[in-house]
Structure formats: C-alpha cells, structure tokens
Simulated assay, not measured.
Amino acid sequence: MRQDILNDDSLTFAEKIISIRAEGSEKVHHPGEITVLPADMAMAQDSTGPLAIKVFDEMGVPKVWDPSRIHLVIDHTFPAADEKVANLHHMMRDFAKKHGVRLVEGSISHQHLLENHIVPGMVLFGADSHTCQGGAVGAFATGIGSSEMAAVWASGKLWVKVPESLKVNLTGQFKKGIYARDVISHFIGMVGEDGGNYKSIEWKGHAVQALSMSSRACISNNSMECGCKLSVFEVDPATQEYFRSVNRKPMYEVHAGTKARYKDEYDIDLDKLEPKVAEPGNVDKVKAVEEVEGTPIDEAFIGSSTNGRYEDLLVAAKVLKGHKINSGTRCIV
C-alpha cells in the first residue's frame, strides 16, 4: 500500500482508494482516468445473476476466480412467484453448487453483505445499482452490469473510470420526525435524477455523527437514484465501534484530504429540513409531505433494501401504534 497516497491531503476518497487499490499501479489516479481494480467481493442477485451465469458459461471459463469471494443472493423474488422465476433460482443454485460460491436465500443482499462481510477499504462490485450502500462504512462499493459481473467472476478484477466527486455538508440537528430518508430525498430533489451520474458522493459535516450505521446505509443505498458511482461515509468513531461490536477489522481507513477538490459542494441544514416524499413518476419529484397531505394512498410498502432495517420498522410501528390501517389502503411490511 502506498502510504504517501493514503496521506495525500489533496485527494478525494475516490481518488485515494482507487490509487491505493489499482492493479500494478504506483501513481495517483485522477478523475476521468481508467484503471483496473482487483475485487475483494462480488455479488449478484436473482434479477441479475442468471444473465451473469449465462455470459460466464458462454465465455468458456472452467472455474471462477475465487469461490469464497462470490455471493449469489436470492432476494428480489423470494420465494419464486412462478415457474420462470423458479427455473432462474434453480440455475443459481446449480451454479453455486458447481463452483462452490456462497448462496444466500431470502435475505436482502445489500444488508446481508453489510452485516456480515463488508469492511472499510474493501472493493465490492455488485450486479445491482444499490450496491453503493457499502459506502456507508467507507468501502468502495458500486453497481455493475451482469456481463461485467461475469468478467469479475472469471478474472477477479474490473476496469473503472475514476469518478469526479461531490461533497455534501450536513449541518444542524435532526428534528422530531426527520430521518435519513428525508436527507437523501431532499438531496435528490436538489440535484435531480441524473445530478450524481458517475460521481462519488462524500457525506461530510458534524451532523454525520448523529447518523447511525442504519441511517448511513439508507443514504448510501438510495444515492444511486441520482446516478452516483459511490456514496461514502468515511470511517469515524461510530464506524470503528460498529466493527468492534461485530468483530471485523477494516482493510483500510481512507479519508479524503482537507484540500481535496470537488466537482460541486452542497449544504443541507437539518434544522430546516421537513419530511419529504417523492411523487410517482420520477425520484426527483420531491415535495414536503405537507404539500401532498390528504392525497389518498392505495398501497403503503414498509421495507426494501433502503428502509427495511429494525430502525425503520420501529419508526413505522410507533407511528401506527393505536391506529388501524385505512379500509381503502393496503399496507405491506
């Protein structure tokens, strides 16, 4: 590891971690440059895994690069809803058995990896756009396509272009009824659905200290809705305490330099933030809840990889306690 790069005060998180981890490189990599990153972990789920398996088989590669680093997760349609999906699940089980890779069924892929495998400094490629959730703990975690995943399975590495970086400063304090989802929805409303295209988002500011690991995961996970490549919270005392509690050690603690240059910087004052909701149609059609108050709701879904953690379910339970679901509304948890 190049300690001089790790200590370089002029580099962003993305520039540092790519320069440190790049294959056979002894140079600093800047935005727009292309290099090759070795993978520490590769994940595909049941919507993307079958195509990756098909491409891998067509490549004629006899075995995967490292079975212990490959995870297949059946989570998007579990249990299988019909015969077609059941056959896709069968394909994944056969591939896992043949190559000895890890197979997980019924657990949300991003949360499973975060709770059991991801550590700071790791390079994770996932055939799912929400893979950037791993950035919540200071990992290089990004989504790729199925054919790219097949290439990772075969070689253990993948080319990447160094992204430009955005800096988001969080200030103020969370008011009652304001949560991490309001933060990321507000940000997406600010920049638009393509405002973070192939960018690395760094979340900064003293208010970050008030965010739990679950809240950071929520923000990093949903950041892909504005097109980001990475969405990162750097390691801090809360991160360190979390990994002590789960008995896992970081690979590297990567921190952006104080003189790092960003494509754009944004400020979000939590004191002024109101509860947010994205209207149907586009993720950036974000409004304050009070603007749409009274709108009939046909179906409410509580869960997903973005908001399906205990912290989220507890908030929902407190809101619903003592009430009944409206007779015209379906509520799914």
Score class of each variant (00 low, 15 high):
residue 3 Q to K: 05
residue 4 D to Q: 08
residue 5 I to V: 15
residue 9 D to H: 06
residue 10 S to F: 07
residue 12 T to R: 10
residue 15 E to W: 00
residue 17 I to T: 01
residue 19 S to F: 00
residue 23 E to K: 12
residue 24 G to H: 02
residue 25 S to E: 09
residue 25 S to G: 04
residue 29 H to Y: 15
residue 29 H to L: 15
residue 36 V to P: 08
residue 38 P to I: 04
residue 41 M to T: 06
residue 43 M to F: 09
residue 43 M to T: 04
residue 51 L to N: 07
residue 52 A to T: 06
residue 55 V to H: 13
residue 62 P to L: 11
residue 68 S to T: 14
residue 71 H to G: 10
residue 74 I to A: 01
residue 77 T to H: 14
residue 80 A to L: 13
residue 80 A to R: 12
residue 81 A to T: 15
residue 83 E to A: 15
residue 85 V to H: 04
residue 86 A to N: 06
residue 88 L to Y: 12
residue 90 H to A: 13
residue 96 A to H: 01
residue 101 V to F: 02
residue 105 E to A: 00
residue 109 S to C: 09
residue 113 L to F: 11
residue 116 N to C: 09
residue 119 V to H: 03
residue 121 G to F: 08
residue 122 M to R: 09
residue 130 H to E: 08
residue 135 G to A: 03
residue 142 T to R: 08
residue 145 G to T: 13
residue 146 S to V: 06
residue 153 W to I: 05
residue 156 G to Q: 04
residue 158 L to Q: 12
residue 167 K to G: 00
residue 168 V to N: 07
residue 173 Q to H: 12
residue 179 Y to L: 02
residue 191 V to H: 00
residue 193 E to M: 11
residue 197 N to F: 12
residue 204 K to A: 00
residue 207 A to L: 05
residue 208 V to T: 15
residue 221 N to I: 03
residue 232 V to A: 02
residue 233 F to I: 00
residue 235 V to D: 03
residue 243 F to R: 04
residue 247 N to W: 02
residue 247 N to C: 12
residue 253 E to Q: 14
residue 255 H to V: 09
residue 262 Y to A: 03
residue 264 D to T: 05
residue 264 D to L: 05
residue 275 P to E: 13
residue 277 V to E: 12
residue 277 V to H: 13
residue 285 K to D: 12
residue 285 K to I: 04
residue 287 K to Q: 10
residue 287 K to W: 11
residue 288 A to E: 12
residue 295 T to V: 11
residue 297 I to P: 06
residue 302 I to K: 01
residue 303 G to V: 00
residue 307 N to S: 04
residue 307 N to E: 09
residue 308 G to R: 00
residue 309 R to L: 11
residue 314 L to M: 01
residue 316 A to N: 02
residue 317 A to F: 07
residue 321 K to E: 14
residue 323 H to F: 04
